[in-house]
Computed example of a mutant assay.
Amino acid sequence: MTDSRANFSASRRQFGRQLLSVGALAAALPGAATAATSPFPAKPITVLLPFPPGGSADAMVRAITHVAMAELGQPVVIMHRPGGGGVTGTASLTQNVAPDGHTLALMHNAVLRQPLLQKVGWDPLVDFTYITGLASLSTLITVRADAPWKNLQELLADAKARPGAISYGTVGATSANRIAGEQLARLVGGQFNMVPYKGGAEAITALMGGHLDVYGDPGVGPVALSGKLRVLASFTDQRLQRFPAVPTVKELGYGLSVYSPFGIVGPRGMDAAVVDRLHTVFSQAATDPIYQKVLEDYDFMPYRMDPAAYRQYAQEQFAREKTLLQKLGFKPE
């Protein structure tokens, strides 16, 4: 009897140690405890916006997150982190941010382009989780309604006759629209004085106030329709529905178009189930009439991509940017 009790006690101790070992292993697995106890989202979600309040990107993100909140069941807080040509805010995701899906950021092509222009401590193809593509900007070339240039040809002729005398505003020193403006001027042997702004609202205010000659970025639609601005051309493949009389740069013979999709990304290493949940919610929100109206008001074009397609786009766009910058002579600082 004594031997049986001893054996039973030994077996209980061994079984207890096995349970502790299994528990320790489970706790060590990445996200195991969180996945088991905390449905996503477990707290408010923060979206980092790399531009100041008041611009077209701000309006778009506010609209889609407002719709998405109902499905997520948690507030979505927009945190503005402008600077660095719209790169700093998004890049901050690479600085010890937990990959739990509760901190996201707006991605755009300037972030992909940045490592090709200067040394940074992150890789846009490695250090982000691509969640969903949203919309692409429609870039318009605009001047004040009382400006001397009645069309794009007159503007470019003046840029050639007076190189560097005409100020051309863009959002970010390395934005796609700044590069397109540089290309456009070079095609005619001219030059603009490129002036970077932190956001579209700031640039439009400068244009309206006479402190800027030309604005070559998106988001001017509402002001242009009021008659306060003159739209000379668009960097789109086809004329915009709201501006049917405005020619495209391509149809005027200059062969340039600009597409710069916005999307949502998170830190690297996010759980696939969380990524899928976020993509599904944002995709559903993108069909809402409120969001669709904002896209129309600010001349966005839908550019929806799932996580795999968005990552592939980023890889291909990075290669395109590298080729273009080498052609234009841009070198890393």
Rank of each mutant, 00 (worst) to 15 (best):
M301W: 04
L106H: 09
K198D: 15
V76R: 02
G172F: 00
P148F: 12
F40M: 01
R81C: 00
L117I: 15
D146T: 10
G266K: 12
Q95D: 15
L72T: 02
R113N: 13
S257Q: 10
M79T: 14
A206D: 14
A28I: 03
G200W: 03
L137N: 14
G216C: 03
G73C: 02
R242T: 14
T280L: 02
V265I: 15
Q18Y: 11
A91W: 09
A273Y: 04
T142P: 00
L19F: 12
D58G: 07
S92K: 07
L328H: 06
L232W: 11
G210Q: 06
S234I: 05
V171F: 00
V67A: 01
V294M: 06
P50F: 13
V111Y: 08
T323R: 12
L106C: 08
N177I: 00
A10N: 11
T88K: 15
R242I: 12
A272D: 13
I78M: 03
E251P: 02
A110M: 11
L49N: 13
L140I: 00
S21D: 07
R186I: 06
I290C: 00
L240A: 08
V220Q: 02
S226I: 05
G199N: 04
D288K: 01
L232R: 09
G16D: 04
L232K: 09
G164N: 07
P222M: 13
P99T: 10
Q14W: 11
F128I: 04
L19Q: 12
L324E: 14
Y168C: 09
G121Q: 11
A176Y: 06
F330H: 15
E321Q: 14
T46D: 11
T2V: 14
S136Y: 04
A308I: 06
S92R: 09
S38Y: 07
R178M: 14
P332T: 07
T287F: 01
K250G: 09
A308T: 11
A165T: 10
K160G: 02
Q18T: 03
P99I: 09
F282I: 11
D58P: 08
L25P: 04
T174F: 11
P30H: 10
K43S: 13
Q118A: 14
V249M: 06
D127N: 14
G181I: 04
A273F: 06
S9C: 08
A98K: 15
D297C: 01
G200Q: 12
V294R: 08
A33Y: 12
A10V: 07
T139H: 12
R62H: 15
F243T: 10
Q18P: 01
A173S: 13
Q191D: 13
S4F: 10
V76K: 01
T236K: 04
